[in-house]
Design a protein around this nucleic acid. Sequence first.
RNA 1: CGGGGCGUGGCGCAGCCCGGUAGCGCGCCUGCUUUGGGAGCAGGAUGCCGGAGGUUCGAAUCCUCUCGCCCCGACCA
Length: 561
Amino acid sequence: MRFSEIFIPTLREAPAEAEAVSHVLMLRAGYVRQLASGLYIYLPLAQKVMQRINKIIREEMDAIGAQEITMPALHPADIWQKTGRWSAIGDEMFRLKDRGKREMCLGMTHEEIVTWLASMEISSYRNLPQIWYQIQSKFRDEERPKSGILRTREFTMKDSYSFDRDEKGLEENYQKHARAYHNIFNRCGLKFYQVESDPGMMGGAGAHEFMAPSPVGEDTVVLCRECGYSANTELARSTPHAHHIEEEWKLEDISTPQKRTVTEVSGFLKINPQFFIKSLLLIGTDGPFLALVRGDQELHEKKLHKLVGDFRAAEKAEIKEILGVEAGFIGPYGNTLKKIADISLKEGVYIAGANKEGFHTKGINPHIHFDAEWHDIHTAKEGDRCHKCGTEIQVEKMIEIGNIFKLGTKYSEPLNAVYLDENGKEVPIIMGSYGIGPARIAAAAVEQNHDKDGIIWPQSIAPYDVEVIPLNIDDADVKSTAEILYTALKESGIEALLDDRDARPGIKFKDADLIGIPWQVIIGKKTLQEGFVELKSRRTKETEKIAPPDVAEKIRELLVN
RNA sequence: CGGGGCGUGGCGCAGCCCGGUAGCGCGCCUGCUUUGGGAGCAGGAUGCCGGAGGUUCGAAUCCUCUCGCCCCGACCA
């Protein structure tokens, strides 16, 4: 393609609204433009990148036997009503009515639709297993779209769905997807991790996320370099590092006037927060109970929710009523409330509220002074130890680029997607659902591959393989060499962008670096008189002199590796 | 849903407090010169100052309402 014939509106300065590096660069390099909050237009270069990403996705999906289909983006409400998600999902779903006043929505995902299809068409175990996938638009009325194309209200997603007779089949298809995803993200040149994740409202038995490390990521992931444990902090387990005090603490109430929070009391007594018990009075479905975590830890509400179901924080008046003292002085010692304590409190001696206005109790020994159910209910953080091998864990921000879910029968049961087994017995289909965000692959690739001058695309998903840059097209030799090389490259099956603009060298260099095509062939008058052109790596900026006839061959070699 | 910020030529911004002819840089157009890292000179075009009301002789500027966008937190199927 010729630069003069492709629309690449580069910007010298970054628009003020962009914050994330990938957003700034994709705007500046002329890849995308914003239509409205969370709605983006993909310009020609971005379109090329997306096509290359989607090609890789299709190849790997096809390789595991997945079959591409296309489902509507516009859905009738009744199917969503049958699974309960019509009401379970709130404002995040775009809803509308058709001319007949029938309720409709724009699909946020396609479990309902694909399960409806399965319920209509699959009747026998002979029809199973199946994997169906599509690359389709999804709509989510995000409360806060952000970071350019990372979190938008309309986006394309590769979503696939597996249908099996039993758990064993599901497990096979789940692992097939995991392998396909590894191939896809590796081929796209991303650094990524497969981590355990919370199935959330997708429901079901198990889930993993594929995460690309980046400071603009919205998820936090716990990693153990030693044993490989990796999990989203929304469920990650860890063992907070145990601390021991030298001196013996005897059980005593100490005066802590007006000191309520752990930070205040810890500062007042000059004792580290890890020797405190943070006591939270919560109201569950069976009444009030205390949740206890170590002073330097945070309660993980999702973990607690899994243990006890719905709960809420007690109000001020309730605390006074139940414990006879105001928040800030409550503690586990000296009451018979049900207690759920974090495992980090199992050992050691602690200070906690004395359930007495203005006092804390020092010397509380968990096994002697109170009973509790022991669980991991803290939020894993940097410095904690791996719960599997004891190594210090690391915590990193990451972009979610894909996920895989074991759904089980969550959708097949309500939508009556069943098959008859060999015995003529009706059995619900076991399902899995698997997503990839192609735009997030692109954004993550830019986040992970850029420098001060612009984007550095991984070869496989770059909009073009090579950019040919004649520095002065007024020079007949330079111009004709560029044309000859451009043609030769094309004939070798290499996708080339020829900067045929009548522009100064500086502009061409700057634009080329911004756009980020991995190889540049620079044709300058002086070097050409010596019989050479230059081949430059966008990433390393290293330059090699090559005779023009050898260029196509050399680049083909580079692309293979 | 809480908190903060911003809307002025295509882009980045100043002007707003203290009301009085709408400015700067970049980009764009024309000509000449230039050509290895965003050129120089000369000339030129482009603004319902987000929108609606109000105050005033007069509003980009003051007041009220509204719409949009961004950031932090919460949420995220």
